[in-house]
Amino acid sequence: MNLTLKIWRQKNSKDKGKMETYPVKDISPDMSFLEMMDVLNNQLIESGQDPVAFDHDCREGICGMCSMFINGEAHGPGRGITTCQLHMRSFKDGDTIYIEPWRAAAFPVIKDLVVDRSSFDRVIQAGGYVSVNTSGNTQDANAIPVPKEDADKAFDAATCIGCGACVATCKNSSAMLFVSAKISQLALLPQGKVEAKQRALNMVKQMDEEGFGNCSNTGACEVECPKGISLENIARMNREYLKASTS
């Protein structure tokens, strides 16, 4: 099929950037979206133009690197998938496809579709861990039984891949789903409970400092999240933080 691509081009973080139009031909419906981008880039390279920069790595939906805002939605149409898992059969011959980078003050554009998500790392550094040193003598793994339900919920929260689709899709560029997933995961496990209060306070503080917006409970993040992280986590974070700040 033949398509028209409208892609955000921006040379570097200082450049103003604009949308550019590129036609692509003979796209197979079995291609992944990123393979279609590969085709475009090869075309651009061979004709002496600058290829479109975009983040990608594992191409199987787990590393969280790919990050395109396609036709108005984070990771494009389709639910429960990352950009790399989107296939061209989701589009029709003759379609125009808009491709933009994640938009948020906390995710400045580096080039074209590549953004800087190190704000996520700094939020984790503020407390997204259990303060336990490596040693051969930690308690036996089965010393503390953990109710299966808690373990499963902690796992569900922990499946966050840190791609930033929640921020990209939220009208407020809020990172609450991301932050709450980590706070929830650790608050649900006995190993993480010890530091739960300080963790909630510190991570929220860092989140605010990074310039993410607030939560309006629109629920868009949950819908667009490739891993289906639940809003339940945001509620749990709200509880944890309330507990921490009132005691």
Binding site: V130, V132, Q139, V146, K148, A151, F155, Q191
Partner: peptide, 25 residues
């Protein structure tokens, strides 16, 4: 020999391994 320590360490870090209904790994 050190394989068992890995599991202990990871659980202490909050890695949510699959568990049985009794709460054990």
């Amino acid at each position: 020999e050190v394989s068992a320590n890995i599991i202990d360490q990871c659980v202490a870090q909050g890695v949510p391994f699959a568990r049985e209904y009794g709460g054990l790994l």
